[in-house]
Amino acid sequence: MNERLSDRTAAACLRAAVAAPSIHNTQPWRFRFDGTAFDLFTDPRRALGAIDPDGRGLHISIGAAACNLRVALAAEGWATRIERPGPGGGAARITPVARLGTSPATLALAGAIARRRTNREPFSDAAVPAAVLDALRRAAAADGIRLVVLDPVRRGAVLALTGAADAWQRADPRYRSELAAWTTGHAERRDGVPATVFGPRSTTSAIALRDFGLQLTGADRDTARFETHPRLVVLHSRGDDPGRWLDAGRALERVLLTAAVHGLAAQPMTQALEVAHLRRLLAPPGGRWFPQMILRVGYGRPVSAGPRRPLRDVLLNAPGVALPLRSTAFSRGEPVAAGRRHQR
Rank of each mutant, 00 (worst) to 15 (best):
residue 309 R to F: 03
residue 295 L to G: 01
residue 312 R to T: 10
residue 270 T to L: 15
residue 256 L to E: 11
residue 51 I to Q: 06
residue 120 R to C: 04
residue 204 T to M: 05
residue 171 A to V: 06
residue 72 A to I: 08
residue 14 L to W: 04
residue 273 L to I: 04
residue 29 W to V: 02
residue 113 I to T: 06
residue 175 Y to E: 04
residue 3 E to G: 03
residue 315 L to Y: 06
residue 256 L to G: 05
residue 129 P to E: 14
residue 156 G to S: 10
residue 138 R to Q: 14
residue 343 Q to F: 07
residue 35 G to H: 09
residue 172 D to R: 14
residue 14 L to G: 05
residue 16 A to E: 10
residue 202 S to Q: 09
residue 334 E to F: 02
residue 157 A to D: 08
residue 109 L to I: 07
residue 149 V to R: 11
residue 106 T to G: 06
residue 308 R to P: 03
residue 18 V to D: 06
residue 86 G to M: 00
residue 284 P to S: 06
residue 329 A to C: 09
residue 12 A to D: 13
residue 148 V to Y: 03
residue 192 G to E: 09
residue 85 P to K: 06
residue 268 P to C: 05
residue 94 I to N: 02
residue 307 P to G: 01
residue 261 V to I: 13
residue 187 A to R: 13
residue 70 R to H: 01
residue 54 D to I: 12
residue 300 G to V: 07
residue 121 E to G: 00
residue 325 L to Q: 09
residue 114 A to T: 08
residue 269 M to F: 05
residue 130 A to T: 10
residue 109 L to Q: 13
residue 93 R to Y: 06
residue 261 V to G: 10
residue 152 P to Q: 11
residue 239 G to H: 05
residue 175 Y to T: 10
residue 160 A to G: 09
residue 18 V to N: 14
residue 269 M to E: 03
residue 202 S to E: 05
residue 73 L to T: 09
residue 179 L to Q: 13
residue 281 L to R: 14
residue 279 R to D: 01
residue 76 E to N: 01
residue 176 R to V: 15
residue 231 R to Y: 02
residue 280 R to A: 15
residue 144 G to K: 00
residue 318 A to T: 03
residue 230 P to C: 13
residue 317 N to V: 10
residue 38 F to S: 08
residue 220 D to K: 05
residue 235 L to E: 02
residue 229 H to P: 00
residue 296 R to G: 02
residue 206 A to D: 08
residue 45 R to P: 00
residue 112 A to F: 07
residue 32 R to A: 15
residue 208 A to N: 11
residue 140 A to W: 11
residue 165 A to T: 10
residue 171 A to T: 07
residue 109 L to E: 11
residue 274 E to A: 08
residue 63 G to R: 00
residue 260 A to R: 05
residue 140 A to I: 14
residue 324 P to M: 04
residue 59 H to W: 00
residue 156 G to D: 11
residue 150 L to S: 05
residue 73 L to C: 12
residue 192 G to T: 09
residue 330 F to E: 14
residue 78 W to C: 07
residue 221 R to D: 08
residue 240 D to S: 13
residue 18 V to L: 15
residue 15 R to L: 11
residue 343 Q to V: 04
residue 196 T to P: 01
residue 179 L to I: 14
